[in-house]
Each structure stands twice: as C-alpha cells, then as structure tokens.
Design a protein around this nucleic acid. Structure first.
Lengths: 252, 252
DNA sequence: CGCAGATTTGAGCGTATTCAAGTGACGTGG
DNA sequence: CCACGTCACTTGAATACGCTCAAATCTGCG
C-alpha cells in the first residue's frame, strides 16, 4: 500500500516531474503540458533489473522517456553477438532512432529498478503539429541523439582505452548532472562488461584501466560507486592522444 | 552559356529532380511540392573539390540536400586533429545533427564538383507544420541518420580492419544504389586517407586491406574505380568475426 | 617533363586482446 | 552458520593486429 502511494507520487504529472525541464515538455505552457500529459501512458510498475522495455525487431509505436533508473540498448548482430549501442539515463528519450525503419533496432533492458513514461509517437506527432515548441523540442531531442552518437564515433575511431574510459565517465557525469545528480559522484549503472561492449574494449582492459586511474588518484571506485577526484586530470586523459588510434591487439 | 543552360536544367524543380523520391518531398502531392520548392534556395554554382559547404561552429540555419557529387564532414577536435565523421552521397541530407546545438559540428567539404539544395530549416519547419507527410519525412530522415550512425558505432566497436572496409563498401554500394547508381560498380569519392580517418584505421592499413581484397578477387580497384566482384564474399568478410575487437597497435 | 600528392610496400613495435587462473561479493541450501 | 555455486571483477602471460616510420612507386596535372 505504501509502495503504491509512493509510486503514484512518482508517476505524477509532467508538471510535478523534476525532469520536465529536460524532457519533451520543456518549453510548454501549463495548458499545453496538460495536453501532453494526457497522451502519456504511465507504466503501472517500474521495470526490474534485466526486464525488457522493448525487443529487437518489435514494431515501433512508442517513444519512452526515462523517469528513473537507467537502460542499455543491446543490438544482436547476424551472428547473435551482443553489442551495447547506447545507455539511457533519466530524462533521456528512448526509441527515436526507430522512426525511420519502423521497428526497434535492439532490446532495451533495465539496468536496475527503473521507470519510464510511454509516449505513443503517433499522438506525439499530432500534438506537435499544433504546438511548435513541442515540435522544436522533438527535433532537438532527435538531433541531440545524433550528436551524441557522432561524439561516440569520434571516440571510437581515434582514442585509446584510457581516453575512451575517461571520456565515458565525463560524459556520464555530464548527463547525470543534467538530471540533477552530482557530476563527480554517482553509481555506475552498468557492469564492466557492458562498458567494454559499449566502448569496444575487452572487459579485462576496462578493469585494468580502471585500476590505473585509481592508482593515479584520478578516480576512486568501490564496486560501482564512482567518485571523480580530479576532473581536470580526467579531462586531460580523455584527449591525451590527438590523433588516430593504434592497432588492435588480437581479435578474439 | 551552354554550361548555365545545363546547370539550370540540373537545378530544376523538385518535380523534375531524379532524387525527389528519396529526398524530403518524397510523399508530397504536386501542390505541396511546389510550396516546398519555393523555400529552397538553389546554389548558383556547384561547389568545386575542397570547397566548404559550411564551417565548424558556424550557426545552423540551413539543411542541405546533396543533388550531385558528395561531401565529407570533418570535425576538428580540441587538439586540431581532423576526423571524418560522415560522408554524404546524392539524395542525403546534411546538417540534421545541428538542430539541437544550433551550430554545425564540423566542416562539410565537397569531395568533387558537387551541388546541393539549400533548405532554410526555419521555413522547412513552418511548412512541416501544415504538411504531415513532410513532417513524417523529416522525422524519418533524422531518424535514419541516427540509425546509420549506430551501425557505424557497431562497426567501430567490434570489427577488424577487413570487416570495417568490407562493411564500408557494402554500405556505400547500398547508398549509391538508392540514388540510382550501380551497387557493384562506382567511383570512390574519397581518398584512402579519408576512408582510414572515417573507419579508425591508418591509411597504410586501408591500402593493405584493399590489396588483400583484390588478391582474393573480391573486388577490383583501379585508382578509385571500384568494382565489387563477389558480393556474397564481401558480405561474409564484413561479419567474419562475431565479437569484440582487438587491441590497438600503437598510438602515434 | 617534373613536381606534389596519393598510394603501396616493408620492417619493427606497441596496445589491447585472448587465454587462464584467482579473488571477492552475494545468495542459496544443507 | 557455513559450504557452495554463480557472477562480477581482477590480475598475469603470451600473442596478434594494426600502428608508426621509412622509402619506393604511382598518379594527376601544370
């Protein structure tokens, strides 16, 4: 009973949502926000760790906004190998890359107890037709997604393991800060394996780099509890090598 | 005189453009297409090789549609190192990732004599407000861009040099085919260096892999004239190793 | 023709991988 | 309560792939 009370508070309207300032309703007036609120389907229960929000290949109908917790997007390639293409933190939108092809390109899995707002895309578009600022915000959200991907691409094409991880932590910090959490102190929602899969590194490499970063006193890490001790140094490490990359050890 | 005649033909309306079926006006009726046509600014002269379409940091006002030729997007990082984040072929849209931040994230440079349609984004949005199918197409274009980027990310996180280049050629082929060119025979618009920069490989590695692919009889390559001889084999090579990646030789 | 840029080829090396073993945390069941 | 299995993570050793450096060759173009 008390839990459901809490949760109904949690799932209040956009007007009471602490993330509304970085979500789609960002620039809406009260009345518009009410309209927007009306099309949102709120999930009855939060998802638990490992639960699927959507499945690869499933037809696209909804965009999701992360309300709490976090998610990873896993793409299974032709050989059945997993590949983590994206992490989603509170306030971020899931599913925008599916508009074109009409189906979700991968599984989206909760990394812990997480909740989302479910937004039927068709209705979102109908509403966006009438509300220019909502339309703007939708464009911007999609565009931002592209931009983040381009960053990751640059990271992957020309950075060493250390740089990748430094960049990754800085990126996570920034994104957490946007949602009102601390920049320098947060809990990593994902495993080392997940990080490796996302950054194109073996988990052993991730582990080794993390060890090195701790030895250097740049971060402290207990389990998944991360503290960024020297932001400037982490930043320096994230862009240490100006150019290309270097070979690739072995291949499995 | 004769040139300008030719060019004015080249720059005819969307209705006469061979690419309209894969560009924004895709689903528009005659009248809508005329409206759309009206907001497009056509460049007076095609760009020559090396000419900038837009500059890094410049404020975003226009989306561009490639009409002929091709472009590369170069991003200069903090250290001034170049990084090719994207190639644009005929029928593709340039600039969509700039909507959010409001400025172009990199230079877009013509890879040969190329022409574009210049579409003021503000006006495009105004028009999209009234024309649902144009809006849909805009969403889809942006979404497709994200999707392509995700593909590249997967390529970069877990593929060997050979796989990357095989994937890259297959991707180029598909994109050329969409614009009405041959899938198995086209001219590479970019240099080996450009390919390397885009795929996170040293140009020497690109060169070596190309040599190997030719020896194996998978492709034939004279200068930049590429012929895909065995598509199935190229496809097989593009997904040879199911998983991770491998080290990174040296780091400059 | 001759230069500049693009590409090819060779030798040696370094980073990150793979394989392998070992530690630690956690929850289950005897 | 402790043995045990599982899972995430750490650490070590050997290896491989692609990088860097260097020089040669090819190409396009004035």
């Amino acid at each position: 009973m008390s839990i459901s009370m809490l949760e109904s508070q949690c799932w209040g309207s956009c007007q009471t949502c602490s993330l509304s300032s970085l979500c789609l309703p960002l620039a809406l007036c009260i009345n518009e926000m009410k309209e927007f609120d009306a099309i949102i389907t709120r999930r009855r229960a939060p998802l638990v760790r490992g639960e699927n929000l959507c499945r690869q290949g499933e037809s696209f109908t909804n965009v999701f906004a992360v309300r709490s917790g976090s998610f990873k997007q896993i793409v299974l390639d032709e050989e059945g190998e997993e590949q983590i293409s994206h992490f989603y933190l509170p306030g971020e939108l899931i599913g925008l890359e599916s508009i074109d092809e009409g189906h979700y390109p991968g599984f989206v899995v909760a990394l812990g107890r997480s909740s989302v707002c479910e937004i039927p895309f068709q209705q979102l578009d109908t509403l966006a037709e009438r509300i220019p600022s909502l339309r703007q915000q939708l464009y911007r959200s999609i565009s931002r997604g592209m931009n983040e991907d381009r960053h990751l691409i640059r990271l992957l094409t020309c950075k060493s393991a250390e740089e990748r991880i430094a960049s990754f932590f800085l990126d996570l910090g920034r994104r957490f800060r946007r949602s009102g959490f601390a920049f320098e102190h947060f809990r990593l929602p994902m495993s080392r394996t997940d990080i490796g899969s996302h950054l194109g590194l073996a988990l052993e490499t991730v582990s080794r780099v993390l060890g090195r970063l701790q030895q250097q006193g740049v971060i402290s890490l207990h389990g998944r509890e991360l503290q960024i001790l020297r932001t400037d140094e982490l930043y320096r490490l994230s862009e240490k090598y100006p150019s290309h990359a270097g070979g690739m050890g072995a291949l499995r």
